[in-house]
């Protein structure tokens, strides 16, 4: 295992943690206009993620920073190649961050902030999946490592399918979180949403799998041809069954939430194994334009220093993150909102 390979899986891990953690608060944002009807319910929905969403989002910032440092060519290609999509994600995240912070301080504009919270959650939830779809499918590039396709080529059916699948997974995950944190009618509605969105996700996931096997055989061959691929397939299967089982039980909210978290781990693992040792494969351009780990990795010293930083930093971050989650455990009450 070279340092560069370690970094490939570390970046995958950072982004997976991001999807698990920010995923549920993005999901709550997408559900917000549908499940939270009274002012009190809206308050609970926002306060359920209020103390933690900001920290969750830092996983994306760290993940993007890690790609920049460890695989600069990949960072440069994706961010400039997926330009408009990346900017839409950015605008979404900005509006969402500000709306969460300003909503309770600003009665006059509350409809504006409610709308911004919903849209700012929906757009990134959808587009992050689309970007992943393109990364699995491959994109046309030149030898310098620049994207040579058009914006519309990014909106191909396969990537859109991955995007919508991801959206429903995130919403399911968010509904499970809201069910854990809420009471009364909001709780009941969250449970109902969780059920509907989970089954939509399940159907879409089957379609995505079939589409991958049929149109991106490189990825599926990699997964089926490697023990690690079978491992993540097994993780996914167990997590799906466990989540379904917990969804049928009263009081299984937290366990079904953990179940959807493990589903995300399984899917992310499959995607990573499917692309390894390429990060972004070429599609429609010569194979030497592919952004492979070996070709794009930073120098040895950079990777080593970063690894040391990560090994020191990650456990500390996880420890105090756990402390803060623990501080805000239990059902969220309307009175818990910010002063």
């Amino acid at each position: 295992m070279t340092l560069a390979n370690i970094w490939f899986f570390l970046v995958a891990l950072l982004l997976t943690v991001y999807v698990i953690l920010d995923g549920f608060d993005l999901g709550v944002g997408v559900l917000y206009p549908f499940v939270a009807r009274t002012e009190g319910e809206k308050r609970v929905a926002r306060a359920s993620i209020g103390p933690i969403w900001d920290g969750n989002e830092v996983w994306l910032i760290s993940g993007a920073g890690a790609i920049f440092a460890a695989f600069p060519m990949v960072y440069a290609m994706t961010f400039s190649g997926f330009y408009l999509a990346i900017m839409l994600v950015l605008f979404g995240l900005i509006l969402r961050a500000v709306s969460l912070e300003f909503r309770h301080k600003d009665e006059g504009w509350k409809r504006v902030w409610d709308g911004a919270f919903f849209l700012g959650s929906l757009v990134p939830s959808m587009l992050v999946g689309c970007a992943l779809g393109n990364v699995i499918r491959g994109v046309p590039m030149d030898l310098r490592g620049d994207y040579t396709g058009t914006f519309l080529q990014l909106l191909n059916p396969y990537s859109l399918l991955v995007g919508v699948t991801g959206l429903f997974l995130i919403v399911t995950h968010g509904a499970a979180w809201l069910a854990v944190k809420s009471e009364g009618e909001l709780h009941v509605r969250a449970l109902r949403c969780r059920k509907i969105t989970f089954w939509v996700f399940a159907v879409l996931a089957v379609a995505t799998s079939a589409a991958t096997i049929l149109t991106v055989s490189r990825a599926s061959d990699n997964v089926f041809g490697r023990p690690l691929g079978w491992f993540f397939l097994a993780v996914l299967a167990v997590a799906l069954l466990y989540t379904i089982w917990q969804m049928t039980k009263v009081g299984g909210e937290l366990k079904s939430f953990l179940g959807s978290a493990v589903i995300i781990i399984g899917l992310a693992g499959i995607a990573a194994v499917g692309n390894f040792p390429e990060i972004v494969p070429a599609r429609g351009t010569p194979p030497e334009t592919s952004l492979t780990i070996a070709r794009t990795a930073s120098g040895h010293l950079t990777l080593l220093v970063m690894l040391i930083v990560a090994l020191i930093g990650c456990p500390i971050v996880l420890a105090y993150t756990a402390l803060v989650y623990r501080t805000f455990r239990g059902k969220t009450k309307a009175a818990d909102a910010e002063y």
Partner: peptide, 29 residues
């Protein structure tokens, strides 16, 4: 990227997490 990316990643891991996580305590705690 070899040089400039590292401090950005370190900022996230060693600084940004700290401020964002404990900001939650300031807001709701």
């Amino acid at each position: 990227g070899n040089i400039f990316g590292a401090p950005l990643a370190a900022e996230g891991l060693l600084a940004f997490f700290l401020e964002s996580t404990f900001l939650g305590v300031l807001l709701f705690g």
